[in-house]
Design a protein around this nucleic acid. Structure first.
Lengths: 251, 251
DNA sequence: TAGATTGTTAATCGATTAACAATC
DNA sequence: TAGATTGTTAATCGATTAACAATC
């Protein structure tokens, strides 16, 4: 397998669809905010709105976890926080290692949200000897030569790769070799991993390109509606795929 | 709308499905690597493998763009690079503004991949007066008071938010007010934006939580297979959703 | 022509959504 | 009881995939 999102293909892990799993953290975040404001209960409508989804989807998602609500009342905030946390595995401690302590690695090491929810930066690793021993976010940078030892010693099961793309696969292989089965990859590289290893990727460049696509389309639509060469009243619909082969006007 | 991915709901923009759009950058990256190695043509099988998808999916994706391949031969690398670039809108220049120049904002400003593909960091903005004028990645940090002017002057259409979560919505509102219609949000916040504005989010914490879910499940499965309390030979399948209500052994 | 590979079809699968019966 | 809201059903929609005819 080599994709960035290779859980068991099409397996709805323990019956929970992937799409639902991906939304549980959103619900949890919204619930945590409610909890901090000491709100005791919340309806699917309110919570869905806070999480930015529609309420039918939220209720369907929760139905995979069990029947944790009360008809006519809503959901108990604290209880749901606990149930979702448990479901996501956040009631235990997850030591994380960050490999590649450049600008991004340092930013992540300093990121507070890490520690808040069960995750703990156990070690920082870099290939540059000159960095070894330097303190980043209160932790010493260790050399990649000791990667396997560091992982085994700290019982790390999640690795974050923030190296240059050219080093990512090699680092990945060593992480996997050392027993790591979950990887968050910030390098712009498709990683190959054996079955049973989960990879998720965060790719700034891809996100920007997707935005650019839509941005371009908006501009094209705008042109078609207003300044467009066709008769006014051109439909607000999309043009054909060839930007330079007009679909709404005669050739 | 308030979700992190609100393109026109279910609209396959100009006929290209969202899922396909999201993969085009992957194909483009693989093709660019081939181009740099002066590889003239590539088959769907080879390219799919490099991009980490299956070849049927790739061919289906390309079919939305047009018929750019040659049966029995494959795809012309240079031609495909051009077509996908054009489709994604990368043949034009996209000035980007980064708001929030902390660790992460600075990391992004320094990120080389930005410039490579049509994107150009036009300005860095921060709310801290003490930072104003400081040089980051060769650019002066400007104050958020001037946000609207900066955006209009530079013709910026894409905004990247790397502020703390508490400031994100407010910054978002000002970006939108200044005419920005595409936002990449790194803050752990659900942004509300009017129709016509695209938001994509990158959320470290959510990615880690999804990994933790799968990691936990792997551990549970492992336990069920080996050290589990039931009779040996317990199925490798998932347990029920309640981690503490055994599904494979008698109560 | 023979071999290779695309582009498309059709089946399948997973995700979303509205609607509403169940029930607090 | 009346009102509110969940949990579930069923319809719909979009995405994936294998298979293969078209064709280079």
């Amino acid at each position: 397998m080599a994709t960035g999102r290779n859980h068991r293909p099409a397996t709805r892990s323990r019956g929970i669809p992937e799409a639902t799993v991906a939304r549980l953290p959103l619900y949890l975040r919204a619930l945590t905010a409610l909890s901090e404001r000491s709100v005791p209960t919340v309806s699917s409508e309110e919570l869905a709105s806070a999480a930015g989804v529609n309420s039918a989807k939220l209720r369907k998602d929760f139905s995979y976890l069990g029947s944790y609500g009360t008809r006519g009342v809503g959901y108990d905030v604290e209880y749901l926080v606990y149930q979702i946390s448990r479901e996501l595995g956040l009631t235990q401690d997850w030591p994380v290692v960050i490999v590649g302590i450049g600008n991004l690695g340092a930013a992540l090491a300093n990121y507070g949200g890490f520690a808040s929810r069960g995750f703990r930066v156990a070690a920082l690793i870099d290939a540059d000897h000159a960095m070894t021993g330097a303190q980043v976010a209160g932790l010493p940078v260790q050399h990649v030569d000791d990667l396997e030892t560091i992982i085994r010693t700290n019982g790390v099961s999640i690795g974050v790769i923030t190296t240059p793309g050219s080093a990512a696969q090699q680092v990945c292989d060593r992480l996997v070799g050392a027993g790591i089965t979950s990887i968050l990859n910030f390098a712009p590289t498709v990683l190959s991993v054996p079955d049973g290893v989960d990879v998720r990727k965060v790719d700034l460049s891809i996100e920007l390109q997707i935005l650019a696509f839509h941005e371009q389309r908006k501009a094209t639509d705008e042109l078609a509606r207003n300044g467009g060469p066709g008769p006014s009243g051109a439909p607000p619909d999309d043009q054909g795929p060839e930007g330079d082969i007009p679909a709404v006007m005669p050739a």
